[in-house]
Design a protein around this nucleic acid. Structure first.
Length: 152
DNA sequence: ATTCTGACA
DNA sequence: TGTCAGCA
């Protein structure tokens, strides 16, 4: 399937290529750890980036022994305020900054208008989270307390 | 033929 | 997580 110079796959193809049940893929989306584009008729369509993120999810589950909840929490801890710098005022009103248990794209309506993305799939926060094999490192580094006398 | 949503012995 | 119904 093609659409503007870009390769797209339907859920069945993805399931076959990655050996994941179609139902499982839909569940990942329901659980908020995956955001998928849909056609006007409601059909999910996947890009190569989506496939890569799905492979990462499988790896986190099989090798890092995380479950959906664990992945969701990891995603919820993405340092969005560093990826998309925001003001003190915005932060005070933002559930994503104030220790949310869900990724920001699952509570789009509660994100400050000044930061809210029109399309979360195109937002750098989602793209950073959903394409990275080393998401744990990103999160750990973002929260690590550094010694200001020796670093930064 | 394939996918979608919603429901559930 | 699976699966079946009834649609598009």
């Amino acid at each position: 399937m093609k659409k503007q110079n870009k390769q797209w796959y339907r859920i069945g193809e993805v399931a076959r290529k990655l050996d994941i049940a179609v139902e499982t893929i839909r569940m990942y989306e329901r659980e908020g750890i995956l955001l998928i584009e849909k056609t006007a008729t409601g059909q999910r369509i996947f890009t190569n980036e989506d496939l890569n993120w799905l492979r990462c999810i499988r790896k986190l589950i099989k090798e890092e022994r995380l479950n959906i909840e664990g992945i969701r929490r990891l995603l919820a801890m993405m340092p969005c305020w560093k990826i998309r710098p925001c003001s003190i005022e915005e932060r005070s009103e933002c559930p994503a900054f104030n220790g949310a248990m869900q990724p920001c794209w699952t509570m789009k309506e509660k994100i400050p208008l000044t930061c809210r993305a029109q399309n979360c799939r195109e937002c750098s926060v989602y793209q950073t989270a959903a394409h990275c094999e080393n998401i744990k490192e990103i999160v750990y580094n973002a929260y690590r307390v550094t010694d200001s006398r020796r670093e930064g």
